[in-house]
Design a protein around this nucleic acid. Structure first.
Length: 361
DNA sequence: AAAATATCCAACCGCTGTAGA
DNA sequence: TTCTACAGCGGTTGGATATTT
């Protein structure tokens, strides 16, 4: 603690707040090609006016190809409740047991929905009667927990661990043995989660995704394509001078918020079907395409990849000096997408600005 | 239709653990 | 052994959106 530690970044001149589609695509393009071995160096090399920490968060919580979006399923919620009973606010550990879900997302879901529900059902046991809320969403199930297994009272856990339902204070014994013991006693509905209890045990005790072969440098807990990307040329990237007008232009419309909205709307059809299975093949061509397609939809920039490729037949359009892959959908998209998709970024002005961005990542 | 309120969630902040010099 | 720098984690916040009045 007392060790001198520089702030994660000098905030001077760095962008903050919501990410623009342009930034997203830049980050994606970079990570796809070079991985994320060094978050601190990444934004500079990728030409992003963000600190590495911000890039990392954005990637892990939003851009990762293996993310599952949309509302939590009942199974996921119950799993979350039970895992929270066992682990407390160890969101990353819980996230490791819920494929496609991020710790941040899980934390949000818990704090906004499940905590209240659990508290309500706990209250019911005492005097009954949860306070009604104005807004009832499909997730905010008014009924008490369906309690599929009578023995697993999620609220007043009967486990021998300390009561951790209130969170951080419940820093219960986390040793693998004890945890294993607890897990053995609890039935967790993982019907559609694609893994069994053994995997769960592995996951929780090892705290990294079992399905992902660990990469030498990064733990690859985010199951990201960068794990399979060679980053040999990382340092060969040119210094990039950001054109300041770009951001103001990009900020003119949309932004991550609007895109997130689109993502919400498209979440179910877009990610619902087989995201995990598809994520498993994210490093092959098909995987790359669906991932980009999903992302495009979420960014409100959706269009067939072929369009971009066909729109940019000239070398300047899709050229990628470092990879020399003209058919890289990300690069192609990156060239054409924003100008096409964002009404604010159109016309000669936008073209001029975009032309100043070194696309040759 | 507009204002007020509630809710959600992406992003930020600060701390911790750890590896390397 | 100590110190530095980094990635990661958990808590919190603020803007955007949805719902109610």
């Amino acid at each position: 603690m007392g060790k001198g530690r520089a702030p994660c970044c000098a905030k001077v001149g760095l962008n903050r707040g919501s990410w623009t589609p342009e930034e997203d695509m830049r980050l994606i393009a970079y990570i796809q090609k070079f991985g994320h071995a060094n978050w601190r160096a990444l934004p500079k090399q990728a030409g992003l006016l963000r600190c590495g920490k911000s890039c990392r968060l954005r990637w892990i919580n939003y851009l990762r190809p293996d993310l599952k979006r949309g509302n939590f399923t009942v199974e996921e919620e119950e799993t979350l409740i039970k895992l929270h009973n066992m682990l407390g606010n160890k969101w990353s550990k819980i996230a490791a047991c819920l494929p496609g879900r991020t710790d941040n997302e899980i934390k949000n879901v818990w704090n906004t929905h499940l905590k209240k529900r659990v508290a309500a059902s706990a209250g019911e046991q005492k005097k009954g009667g949860a306070k009604g809320k104005k807004k009832t969403t499909c997730v905010d199930v008014p009924a008490p927990a369906p309690s599929p297994s009578p023995s697993s009272s999620t609220t007043t856990t009967t486990t021998t661990t300390t009561n951790c339902s209130s969170g951080e204070s419940g820093e219960q014994s986390n040793s693998s043995k004890e945890l294993e013991f607890e897990l053995d006693k609890i039935e967790i509905p993982m019907l559609d989660l694609g893994f069994d209890l053994d995997m769960l045990l592995d996951t929780v005790t090892n705290t990294h995704c079992p399905a992902i072969p660990s990469a030498p440098t990064s733990p690859c807990s985010s199951a990201s394509p960068p794990c399979v990307v060679d980053d040999g040329a990382l340092l060969d990237l040119p210094e990039i001078d950001i054109v300041p007008e770009l951001w103001s232009i990009m900020d003119g419309e949309g932004g991550a918020g609007a895109c997130a909205e689109t993502a919400q709307d498209n979440a179910a059809p877009c990610h619902g079907k087989g995201t995990e299975a598809r994520a498993a093949t994210a490093d092959d061509d098909d995987g790359k395409e669906w991932w980009l397609e999903d992302l495009e939809k979420e960014l409100g920039l959706w269009g067939p990849i072929e369009d971009y490729q066909h729109q940019q037949p000239d070398p300047q359009g899709c050229v990628d000096p470092l990879s020399a892959s003209v058919d890289d959908p990300v690069s192609c998209y990156f060239q054409a997408g924003p100008a096409r998709a964002t009404s604010a970024v159109q016309g000669p002005e936008a073209s001029a600005v975009l032309a100043n961005i070194p696309m040759d990542l």
